[in-house]
């Protein structure tokens, strides 16, 4: 380098001062191609939005005739679900209760385990082990639900009967245990992301004030990441509410509310399982058919509101991080 130095400005070196796009007069072909590209990409993006809207539209449309036939209060309060009987009764309360039972019980199992694993992965374990464990946990999400279902029926159900003396092994407890395992990857993954996104400053500040690791984790880290953790729980909950195959196989599908109410060793039936189990052979344009769509609307409203709430908490978590 003994000659004159060629000095380039930053813009020249990276070619940034080249015009990004030529005017239509300069490059008509490029202009048209870019417009077309935009239009195609816009349409592709629209399909998923359109799909959501169409699903809403069609499910509601098929459910509407039902509301004109059977009163909404009977649908929501009556517990007798006999859609095929001569005097058909469409009381969905037992089904709604079934969905609530398995979802809440699944959360009771999966939330503590999920959050503690997330904390362990983000704050305690060495990076090498974490790099191995997290993908393995996420692998749980890749197992098809019918495989979980077979495990529930063939392994878990007999085991519960022999171990705890339950008269039936396919019950609310069985379904919620399996759902808990299925919700774990979502909960762990989202919670771990939000906890490790907090950055070291917060933890260092806490340590410098003399807090122990236990205090730092439970008094500083978890409260600071609470928005992300709540979002993780709600996403896990949506997984549990919407799951069909596993509950259809593991819950026993008895359309009853357990008596006494806390006894989750009894069979229950969820909304999703009812739709999946009965839709196939139900003749169109019958009250039964409409009733199944009414159940679908109920489910849509439920998951939609859960989704909105989780979006709210996720955006709050992002904003909180942005401020730091």
């Amino acid at each position: 380098m003994n000659g004159t130095k060629l000095i380039l400005t930053r813009g020249q070196a990276t070619g940034l001062n080249r015009p990004l796009a030529l005017t239509p007069g300069q490059d008509l072909k490029g202009y048209v191609a870019s417009l077309l590209g935009r239009a195609v990409l816009f349409l592709i993006t629209c399909t998923s939005v359109l799909a959501v809207l169409l699903i809403f539209f069609f499910v509601c449309r098929e459910a509407l005739p039902f509301l004109s036939k059977i009163s909404l209060s009977e649908f929501l309060i009556n517990t007798e679900w006999y859609p095929e009987a001569d005097n058909a009764r469409f009381g969905a309360l037992a089904l709604i209760a079934g969905s609530v039972y398995v979802t809440i019980a699944a959360l009771v199992f999966s939330v503590p385990v999920g959050i503690l694993s997330a904390v362990f992965l983000s704050d305690i374990v060495s990076f090498r082990i974490r790099a191995f464990v997290k993908p393995v946990i996420e692998l749980l999400a890749a197992i098809p639900s019918v495989a979980y279902g077979f495990f529930a029926v063939l392994v878990l159900a007999p085991w519960m009967q022999n171990k705890f003396g339950f008269s039936t092994g396919t019950n609310a407890l069985n379904a919620s245990l399996i759902l808990a395992v299925m919700a774990l990857p979502t909960i762990v993954s989202v919670a771990e992301d939000s906890i490790s996104a907090l950055g070291p400053e917060l933890r260092e500040a806490s340590y410098s004030l003399g807090a122990t690791r236990f205090e730092t984790i439970f008094r500083v880290v978890i409260p600071a990441a609470h928005s992300g953790i709540i979002a993780a729980i709600i996403l896990g909950m949506m997984r549990a509410v919407g799951e069909t195959m596993v509950v259809w196989m593991a819950s026993g599908n008895a359309a009853q509310i357990p008596r006494p109410w806390w006894d989750i060793s009894q069979s229950v039936r969820t909304i999703t399982a009812t739709i999946a189990g009965e839709m196939g052979e139900t003749p169109k344009e019958t009250p039964h058919y409409w009733a199944l769509f009414a159940l679908g609307v109920l489910l849509l409203i439920l998951t939609f509101s859960l989704n909105v709430v989780s979006e709210f908490f996720l955006s709050r978590a992002k904003r909180a991080l942005g401020k730091q």
Partner: peptide
């Protein structure tokens, strides 16, 4: 009765009875 459990195939009905003493 509401307490009746439902399964969605002959093999599954068979499996439930095979593994449940009171079924």
């Amino acid at each position: 009765a509401p307490a009746v459990e439902y399964v969605n195939s002959n093999p599954q009905a068979h499996a439930r009875v095979k593994t449940t003493t009171g079924a």
